[in-house]
């Protein structure tokens, strides 16, 4: 079953108070060298059927209209990934033909 991952971030020009608080905690605990931290959201949408162009168009619309608010956020990535179980299956298939055990690339990205 394919999983679709949508990444959303607060707009770059906006203050991200959550990220700022984390950056402050890093500095307080002596973890220096990080000039900023920003916090976004990752959505995982699992589908039962095939990932075709119609579904991709639907995901694009959902990402822009519901999962994000264009006034305050940007959709920074939509990734079509396969599940861990499928990855494992692919890896074991690949292991039979390659020495290093790494199989096909993990899903399609755009």
């Amino acid at each position: 079953m394919p999983t679709i991952v949508v990444d959303v971030m607060p707009k770059a020009e906006l203050l991200d108070p959550q990220g700022k608080a984390v950056a402050g905690a890093l500095a307080r605990t002596g973890r220096t060298g990080f000039s900023s931290v920003r916090i976004g959201k990752r959505f995982e949408l699992t589908v039962d059927g095939p990932v075709d162009d119609a579904l991709k168009a639907s995901v694009q619309e959902i990402a822009e209209e519901i999962l994000s608010n264009g006034v305050i956020e940007d959709v920074v990535g939509i990734h079509y990934e396969v599940t861990n179980a499928e990855l494992a299956a692919e890896a074991s298939d690949a292991a039979s033909v390659t020495e290093d055990g790494f199989g096909a690339p993990a899903g399609e990205t755009h």
Partner: peptide, 17 residues
């Protein structure tokens, strides 16, 4: 109302957190 598009702009976390 902003999420529904009836009013413009948006509301984000208070700047002081």
């Amino acid at each position: 109302l902003t999420e529904a598009g009836l009013l413009e702009g948006g509301l984000i976390r208070n700047d002081h957190g």
